[in-house]
Design a protein around this nucleic acid. Structure first.
Lengths: 337, 337
DNA sequence: CTGTTAGCGCGTTCAG
DNA sequence: CTGAACGCGCTAACAG
């Protein structure tokens, strides 16, 4: 490994001068700078970030706390698209990303805050963590700059990126209502996700705007999983045969629901109309193609990275970003009289 | 930030003693150790990895050099599944992952080797990089331990994880041949990927085993992209109407090929049979469901992480891992007489 | 068993 | 414009 000391020796100057020359300080002779840069290049020097961050307290590194980066989370590649957006923007801004191995159930012996401190990340982006996570509160209220995706917590140094889930859900519901559906069920995600609450609100609001009373038992838990949603759909169909449509709070759950409908010998959308949420890739290729609410996943990650860096570099920006969603009409909804 | 110095002061011992106590050295009194650990806990101490790695030259960090972690790579979530596998295993082994923002075309001013040196990663996993990448050779022949996924290069400290692409392609072809197809085209990925070469070999081998001469013009370039494959299929169909089946070197390209067939007013598998490769999630949900060669993506990542850590920790293991593939029969192939 | 000393690679006063 | 000296947080000899 070649250090500035090596360069200093080779260029016949002091270590300090090398440091200043390489960091673009103005108070160094243009001649010496050129010589130093040349030597550095020749020797293939690259600065040691560990040493640098030891002093500067900055590492140009963003920590990532994600769930859904484990086995069986591939279909739901939302996390991946968001990650792509973060990766792109972070790269442009010259930051690297470190993925914390947020071990699932395994004894999480270390708090998120400790994780960040140890690694010396400048800030952290958090996504997919449940609201009841034991370490969430701690890091959010710490001094570490955080950007939360779909998690509504306040803190001294936090930013927030989300989608307009209420409106999105509402639009999806209005679409069903406009198509004549009056008995509409909902399969929601678990309650420890903020989006579940918002999407439920959209469901309720849309119903209200059509003067339809909200029937709590029409809403079942699908826990954001295909299997759980499938089961919920089975129960829903036998308990409430009057339902002609079901709004699912994720496409993965829509997939499960459709399987249940098929399992019952019925079909979508002939017997039951289904609307999903997220617009995952499978939704478009599925038969029937699933009508869903598109979420800008890549953009979410991109904005989150941007916002975090803004926070890090002390820019005074809006810390609350809400992205649009839009209805994507496809073939899983039919019009009834 | 609380350091060992703080602990030393609070516990009335020297800094060294704190260091030894916390790092589990045997030569420290059980009494003092307990006291120190207690103080450390109370103060919420966590070690500064930057400082530690400055001395130990180890950072418990694995670098990741991936392509396909940018916009428009979501359908092809192979990278994501592999990433999940790496993340899981790395987590279990107590390593963190850092994603290098391997800026796409943008002026890659920094070589991969420099990237690794600066960040002080212990080793690096490389995937999706083209064989003609300018910096690939450099890092592979450096002292930095590397694990290459689907890249066949030798180096002093490299491991290699791949799938049996020849066999996989061969199995796919034999399936077509067994179903009576005799005029079979191939849409291959770009030549700067090792898997393309292997899959082509499988194609040729299978043909040979049935005594069918290899016709070079039956193989077209789809560059691993949906759009390029679509175009290739159009050309293929008009130039060689005798083809009854096409083997695509990726599912994404199979998707493109199918679109072209549809665009021609024909259908799969009635007019043309298609077999893909990879077994991406969409393949199962697509109509017709795509017959393909399954690749163990998660396992690939898992094994790559394991292998790299083995290399890092000096274990003498097999550095060459080849994972099985298997044919997944679905609905995109028909039997002809 | 414990403390003292030195130094990892770098940036930053403060004198020249 | 340049250099000597110091210290970031930590580990590793080397004494005692």
């Amino acid at each position: 490994m070649v250090t500035i000391k090596d360069i200093a020796r080779a260029a016949q100057v002091s270590i300090t001068t090398v440091s200043r020359a390489l960091n673009g300080y103005s108070d160094v002779n243009e001649e010496t700078r050129k010589k130093i840069v040349a030597v550095a290049d020749r020797l293939g020097y690259s600065p040691n970030i560990a040493a640098r961050s030891l002093i500067s307290k900055k590492s140009k590194t963003i920590g990532l706390l994600l769930s859904n980066v484990t086995r069986d989370s591939s279909k739901d590649n939302i996390a991946f698209e968001v990650l792509c957006g973060m990766n792109d923007r972070a790269g442009e801004l010259d930051y690297d990303l470190v993925l914390f191995s947020t071990t699932p159930q395994k004894q999480k012996t270390k708090s998120y805050k400790k994780l960040c401190n140890e690694r010396g990340v400048d800030g952290v982006i958090i996504m997919g963590i449940r609201l009841d996570d034991p370490y969430l509160e701690e890091i959010v209220s710490s001094e570490i700059p955080c950007v939360l995706i779909d998690i509504p917590l306040k803190g001294p140094n936090v930013g927030y990126v989300t989608s307009d889930n209420v409106k999105g859900a509402c639009t999806a519901m209005v679409h069903l209502l406009e198509n004549g559906h009056r008995h509409i069920g909902m399969i929601n995600g678990h309650t420890q996700a903020d989006v579940s609450r918002h999407r439920l609100r959209g469901y309720i609001d849309a119903l209200a705007s059509y003067g339809i009373p909200y029937n709590e038992s029409y809403v079942m838990d699908g826990s954001f999983s295909e299997a759980a949603a499938k089961e919920a759909m089975y129960r829903m169909h036998s308990l409430y045969p009057e339902l002609t449509a079901v709004f699912c709070a994720s496409d993965l759950m829509a997939l499960g629901a459709i399987q249940a409908v098929k399992g019952l010998g019925r079909s979508v959308p002939e017997h039951i109309s289904i609307v999903g949420f997220d617009n995952i890739d499978i939704a478009a290729y599925h038969t029937p193609a699933i009508t869903t609410v598109n979420q800008h996943k890549y953009e979410t990650g991109y904005q989150a990275a941007q916002l975090l860096v803004d926070l890090l570099e002390g820019r005074n920006v809006n810390r609350y970003i809400v992205l649009n969603t839009e209805l994507v009409k496809r073939d899983s909804v039919r019009t009834i009289l």
